[in-house]
């Protein structure tokens, strides 16, 4: 089954004079890890922004073509549907974490979705274990290493239990051990039925993916 279809996608940032993405089409399978690769500045991050529906409303520009998410036209999805369906982890961990403890960081999204206290408790335990950050629970996210921060960012998104997970070069600030950890977390998630799209330009980081798409 196909989770995401992209058809003839084009995007040009406001005030820029060339199209970053041009007539791009791809299908992303449900329940698989798909890696998207390509040179620096070729528009990988931009593609994830488009799929997450951040263009053209938050990142201004001209968007053409169609994106379909789990059978729905992206243009017809409202912000709540998008939050619930697609989680995204950005490249820079520093600006993604804003709470004063890891625990607060994790519950932030769940509270926004109005999830009951007991359910939050349950997810918190589960996800802290899955990502192996139980020990960091009461620490300040701003004071963690890049790798730990990225784990916290991933965990924070998982708390909202999205069907699809988009990851933008999450391995780039991360040491070798944590890279191995992230790969095993992603494989776990895949086995639970999640669809994962990861962007990375380093071959070693994406060999474990089910499919690799070069743009």
């Amino acid at each position: 089954m196909i989770a995401i279809t992209v058809r003839n996608l084009g995007f040009k940032y406001e005030k820029a004079d060339h199209w970053i993405l041009n007539d791009l089409s791809m299908d992303i399978n449900k329940g698989e890890i798909t890696a998207i690769t390509g040179g620096n500045g070729c528009g990988k991050t931009t593609l994830l922004r488009c799929i997450r529906g951040l263009t053209p409303n938050i990142y201004k520009g001209k968007l053409v073509g169609d994106i379909n998410i789990l059978g729905k036209d992206l243009k017809e999805m409202d912000s709540l549907q998008l939050v619930k369906t697609i989680g995204i982890v950005f490249q820079n961990p520093e600006t993604q974490l804003f709470s004063s403890t890891v625990e607060d960081e994790l519950i932030f999204g769940a509270e926004n979705l109005c999830i009951e206290k007991d359910e939050i408790e349950k997810r918190l335990k589960e996800i802290l274990t899955l990502t192996g950050i139980e020990d960091l629970r009461l620490q300040n996210p701003g004071k963690l290493s890049g790798g730990e921060q990225q784990l916290v960012a991933i965990a924070s998104v998982l708390m909202m239990d999205p069907e699809i997970l988009l990851l933008d070069e999450v391995m780039s600030w991360v040491d070798k051990n944590n890279r191995i950890k992230i790969k095993s977390i992603l494989t776990d998630l895949k086995n639970k039925g999640k669809t994962i799209v990861m962007v990375d330009h380093i071959d070693e980081n994406i060999e474990f993916a089910d499919r690799i798409i070069k743009i």
Partner: peptide
């Protein structure tokens, strides 16, 4: 933006 994609003010 990070706050928004995690559902801040979505409900």
């Amino acid at each position: 933006i990070s706050m928004e994609v995690r559902g801040f003010r979505a409900m």
